[in-house]
Nucleic acid binder design. Structure first.
Length: 454
RNA sequence: GCCCCCAUCGACUAGCGGCCUAGGUCACCACCCUUUCAAGGUGGCAGCACGGGUUCGAAUCCCGUUGGGGGCACCA
């Protein structure tokens, strides 16, 4: 246990990691440039354990993580809980699972705001003894300055100042003895030696309060960086109405974690005006707070879909198949694995999300119900005849046979292929016809075609 | 109501006083390729919220207006 230099009066479990070479972090508001000499970096992700992890919050965590990882710093996970119910426990597991799935990790054990409860009470008592805080109907309040301004140089938004007359004497400890968020949170930041508090925009108005708490405590101030909100398409807060909002939902919807991470990173941040597809390592390497924009961003599901498709197509076939198998298993689909792997090859170019596999290749795993309107008995009978003679039963040979059939019938390929496709796959949209037929097998293919003409 | 923040194509953004008749990506439209749908290729549509300044020169700096968001708890 050594004494934290950043917090002389309170000893903390570990000092800031000085072994890491000093790095200079520049912050540049529109009008001026300041330079922070940062010895090392320690950030924290601080979700509330309220159900599923919201994508807006995840984006904030991602910025924390990218920032820390990009400069050899530490990234901690702290749960801002005020109770320890069963729900909280489950919620924490959920949060950790979501973060891991996305590829965001953290250093050390997950901590809890509640851990600091006793410490907070003691500190509050000390402030009362010092006269900077006082008791009020059983609660402890801190005296806020009522003249001048409290301000800071936000690493994203630039200089922000609040008139002190707006600040009320904040409750530090409730009459039931529990510390409030605006006391526990900065206290814990301080105890942990957090150097950069990177959090949502909605905390801007808490910052002057917390700065004053920290000052009263005699603690050093962290650098604050407030990242703008993420909205839904209607400019309102992102909610279920807009589609998937929790990490879990994106996972279920068949998005790849690396695609989601790439997309999220680009919401409010851009390395330049050109680059869009970036690997995890590249994101880490290029991320900087100074390039985080200060205006809110809208979550564009269409762009995410596009990006996910880019990642899906870029996967080596075998890995694509692995992901598909894992995804289907998770979803409780018990289709034959070997067949899924075989089908993977013919759908990779076609789907934008793993979830689309089921509708795209489902015909290989279960019977279909073709729309009679789209069938054509004359063509299907002829097709059955032609396919019967194909030898061997492989895509290339099937192609030759079907092209010959078009000649024979004097029809355009699209006129001939549509009914066959519908009869066999049950849909007008499917993987390539020749490959689909090959995979389905001669017997089943012919059976499906004949059934429609019977 | 008070305080704080924000403002470039429909969306994400580049732009830090001249390189901008504003660039990239998604979406959209057209064409090409093609067995469908995609993917891919080519081209196109589309934007500096408004009004005042400052300056030889403003998307870029300043002020105001309007619009949007956040906050004003013994919630986090």
């Amino acid at each position: 246990m050594n004494t934290c230099t950043a917090f002389p009066r309170i000893s903390c479990t570990r000092s800031i990691a000085f072994e890491i070479p000093p790095a200079a972090d520049t912050w540049a508001p529109k009008s001026m440039r300041l330079r922070y000499a940062v010895v090392s970096v320690r950030v924290r992700m601080a979700p509330s354990p309220t159900g599923l992890l919201h994508i807006g919050g995840v984006r904030t965590f991602l910025f924390n993580w990218l920032f820390a990882r990009g400069r050899g710093g530490e990234c901690r996970l702290r749960i801002e809980n005020t109770d320890t119910s069963r729900e909280v426990e489950e919620s924490v597991e959920q949060i950790e699972r979501s973060l891991r799935w996305l590829g965001i990790d953290w250093d050390g054990e997950t901590t809890f705001q509640l851990d600091v409860m006793e410490r907070a009470k003691g500190e509050a008592q000390r402030l009362v003894a010092e006269g900077t805080a006082y008791e009020d109907e059983g609660a402890i309040r801190i005296r806020m300055p009522d003249e001048g301004v409290t301000g800071w140089d936000d690493a994203i938004k630039g200089r922000i100042e609040f008139p002190n007359e707006e600040l009320e004497d904040l409750v530090l400890v409730r009459s039931d003895g529990r510390p409030t968020y605006n006391f526990a949170s900065p206290l814990e930041d301080s105890l942990e030696g957090i150097t950069h508090v990177i959090r949502g925009d909605d905390h801007v108005s808490n910052t002057p309060k917390q700065i004053n708490v920290l000052r009263a405590l005699g603690a050093e101030l962290p650098v604050y960086a407030h990242v703008p909100n993420v909205f839904g398409e209607d400019g309102k807060k992102l909610s279920k109405r807009h589609g998937a909002v929790s990490v879990d939902e994106f996972r279920k919807a068949g998005y790849l974690p690396e695609a989601l991470m790439n997309f999220l990173a680009l919401l409010g941040w851009a390395p330049d005006g050109e680059t869009t597809i970036m690997s995890r390592d590249e994101l880490i390497e290029r991320f900087s707070l100074e390039r985080v924009g200060s205006s809110p961003a809208t979550f564009d599901y269409a762009k995410l879909d596009w990006m996910n498709g880019v990642y899906l197509r870029a996967l080596p076939l075998e890995e694509f198949a692995d992901r598909l198998v894992a995804y289907l298993r998770e979803r409780g689909v018990d289709w034959d694995e070997q067949r899924v792997r075989a089908a993977a090859a013919i759908v990779q170019e076609k789907i934008g999300k793993l979830s689309e596999f089921e509708s795209f290749a489902g015909f290989l795993f279960h019977d279909v119900e073709p729309d009679p309107e789209l069938l054509d008995a004359r063509i299907l009978e002829a097709a059955a005849g032609a396919l019967e003679r194909v030898e061997p039963w492989a895509a290339a040979e099937i192609e030759v046979a079907l092209k010959a059939l078009c000649e024979e019938l004097g029809e355009k390929p699209r006129a001939v292929y549509l009914p066959i496709r519908v009869a066999v796959t049950g849909s007008r949209v499917s993987p390539g016809l020749y490959e689909s037929l090959e995979l389905l097998g001669r017997e089943e293919s012919l059976a499906r075609i004949r059934r429609t003409t019977a």
